[in-house]
């Protein structure tokens, strides 16, 4: 079977179209179904959000919509809760990205050895990824409970605390607790991506480094790590996007509190849209998130160009 009979196939109408149409038109025709789906599911909704962000819509009746110009955006700049949520989102994103990469890579190196039981370990470490973030949030809330929580019981048993610590009710600990819960859930995902990347590190390079007398950490630093740069950039980008849009674990564990200490852009967007009926402000927050995500993607491309 060759391509020739296929090329010759087709109705007379298709053959006429091929003769007359430019390659661009053919490409457009072929891409049209995908473009329609993209427009319906992504482009139009995003454009609607952008338009809504300039309005005073309450989310009920579209006829009651009012044009505000950039008022919603200007309001955000002077809104202390937005600034807090913005800062928390950045802290959360940077912290989870760094920790997930460090833990994920460490676990990948661990399961990449030929030691007995690594297959089982891989499965166990990946297991939390399969859980719903809501379940993970509830589980960690129980673990971190002030009275009767697992962590306090352990610390009390070890004699490290004598009074219960309310991890999720204390502004000093709450954000860190949510970050740890998130890293616990998704480290297995990063591990799998790094593990896949490690399979592509050429053995010949590692052997050559060994012959040159490189120690284990030198091999890691000068051979393994550079070979993982592309994987690392993809993993980091996924983590950044995941961090920017974090909602469920935060909402279940702290509702953004106490006193906004764990408020992130997505939880604030939810509050504005569905509790305060300010869909315009919520849409402006969504646009901020979109811009941040696009910025992260652009940064990744720029960094990769220099690798």
């Amino acid at each position: 079977m060759t391509a020739a009979p296929l090329a010759a196939a087709g109705t007379p109408m298709v053959r006429r179209f091929r003769r007359r149409a430019s390659p661009g038109a053919v490409g457009l025709a072929l891409a049209a179904p995908t473009l329609c789906i993209f427009a319906g599911l992504v482009a139009i909704p995003v454009a609607s959000v952008v338009v809504t962000s300039f309005t005073s819509w309450t989310g009920f009746d579209i006829s009651g919509i009012g044009w505000l110009g950039i008022e919603n955006y200007a309001g955000l700049l002077t809104d202390p809760i937005f600034l807090k949520a913005f800062a928390n989102t950045l802290i959360f994103t940077v912290a989870t990205t760094v920790l997930l990469n460090a833990v994920g890579l460490g676990l990948a190196l661990l399961v990449n050895t030929r030691a007995h039981g690594t297959a089982f370990l891989k499965a166990v470490l990946f297991l939390p990824v399969l859980l719903s973030p809501v379940i993970v949030g509830l589980m960690w809330s129980g673990l971190l409970r002030g009275v009767g929580g697992g962590l306090n019981q352990l610390l009390g048993f070890l004699g490290l605390i004598h009074q219960p610590v309310f991890w999720l009710g204390d502004g000093r600990f709450a954000l860190a607790a949510v970050i740890i819960a998130t890293v616990w859930q998704f480290a297995g995902y990063d591990m799998i991506l790094y593990y896949a990347g490690l399979q592509n590190v050429p053995d010949t390079l590692l052997e050559a480094a060994e012959l040159d007398g490189a120690r284990a950490w030198e091999k890691f630093l000068h051979v393994v790590l550079p070979a993982l740069y592309h994987v690392m950039s993809v993993v980091a980008l996924l983590n950044v996007i995941g961090g920017l849009r974090i909602f469920d674990i935060v909402y279940v564990m702290t509702r953004g509190g106490p006193s906004r200490s764990t408020e992130v852009l997505a939880t604030y967007m939810y509050e504005q849209g569905f509790q305060l009926n300010a869909m315009g402000v919520a849409s402006a927050l969504a646009v901020v998130l979109i811009v941040l995500a696009i910025g992260a993607s652009a940064l990744r491309l720029r960094v990769l160009r220099h690798v």
Binding site: V147, G148, P164, G169, D170, P258, S259
Partner: peptide, 17 residues
């Protein structure tokens, strides 16, 4: 008040106490 009010839901953890 019992400590840790901000860590407890109105009708779950606090009611459990």
């Amino acid at each position: 008040f019992a400590p840790g009010a901000n860590s407890m839901g109105a009708f779950n953890e606090s009611l459990d106490l």
